[in-house]
Design a protein around this nucleic acid. Sequence first.
DNA 1: CTGCTGACTTTCT
DNA 2: AAGAAAGCCAGCA
Length: 144
Amino acid sequence: MARTDEAEAFFHAVYAAVQEIPPGKVTSYGHIAKLIGTPQRPRQVGLCLKHLPTDTSSRFHHANVPWQRVINAKGVISPRSQPSGSLNQAAALEAEGVTVTTGALGELSVDFAEFGWFPRILPSEAAMGMVPESDDDGDGSEEG
DNA sequence: CTGCTGACTTTCT
DNA sequence: AAGAAAGCCAGCA
């Protein structure tokens, strides 16, 4: 009962978060999961996109949900996301202006340092990553 | 109804 | 630094 209802809300939250991604930018499943308040369920985010209806009659569908901008934390597009015999996702990203790098294994990777879309992490997350005691290593993970 | 899988991430070793 | 394991929960057989 409530379980399915919650799932629907979860799906809805995911699609909404994905739509928040601006063109020419990409983000990771974990980040989406965090934004919607479920940092421990990155896989479910993927499931949402997988079950994303192509029917434009639905509230969310492949046309209005830029699922292509969602990739894994490694900055590499999941091979399962590729349509049969076509690298549409990468092409779509390039169309947005995202530079997709093709690895030797044929996998597609995106530079988070350049196209990584990280609007604002949860307050606790920001505090966690901001450890004054910890020495700086010059990660330079700021992006405006 | 039961069990495994999966468009993943985080943490320990 | 790199590798292995755990965790989460919906969907499918």
